[in-house]
Amino acid sequence: MNQFQCQAEIVRMEHLTSDIVRMTLQAPDIAACAIPGQFIMVKAGEGCDPLLRRPFSIHQVIGNGRVQILFKVLGKGTRLLAGMRAGMALNLVGPLGRGFSLESREGFCLVGGGMGIAPLYFLARELQRLSRPPQLVVLLGARTAAELAQLAEDFRELGVRELHLATDDGSLGHHGYVAELIPRQLGRGGDDWQLCACGPHPMLQAVAKEAKSLSCPCQVSLETMMACGISACLGCAIPRAGLSGAYLHVCKDGPVFDAKEVAWL
């Protein structure tokens, strides 16, 4: 198993907005084997409050043994992390979970909402590096233009030409939800395309619905509360599709699932 616990130096802190932070960490072992869609568990602070590690998707792997995470300040843990400075160190566990499948397709349509955009950057990059890169459409949504501007710019710099944006307040791109952009992009027949989505649960639900009506295969990256991230606590259960009443475990069976595996209640 390629998993590590390591003490990682923070190389860079970028405050993209007042509450969105991109953190670059020196973590060569993790960088060497991470795949898009996998996550790391980060210990915020030294003491026992907050007690548990926090899960974050790997936003990017950079050549010289570095990984990036992109996060929004929500509570105690993320506030502590946002207050860290370059030169300090954090304890990481990872890379964890099952990532996106890059299995060959004519095109990939990536749909990201809010901080769900984080793993899609890594995914877009790896797709472009394939020997026969598929067509790539990237749809990004957020609440406001401020939250989206820098991230959209990063995708443009990657060379993503088909980039479409949506904001809840209409301050940038489509005024509405990002999932609403899917039919326009994939209307031409989706069955040889692959949808890959990450974001808030209602957004994923909407994406899964679009995927179904377009008969387009769809991978979704889900979030739950997690205590361990390594399949030990069984705390990260979500209902499995079908009538069995059984559960999937996000940290081990996911976080990336085929949308058909999940019960979308």
């Binding site: 907050p50 509360m225 205590a227 069984l234 705390g235 990260c236 259960a237 209902p239 059984a246 559960y247």
Partner: peptide, 11 residues
């Protein structure tokens, strides 16, 4: 045993 419905844990 299948276990309980989520959420199953809280800090």
């Amino acid at each position: 045993r299948k276990g309980n419905p989520p959420p199953r844990i809280v800090e």
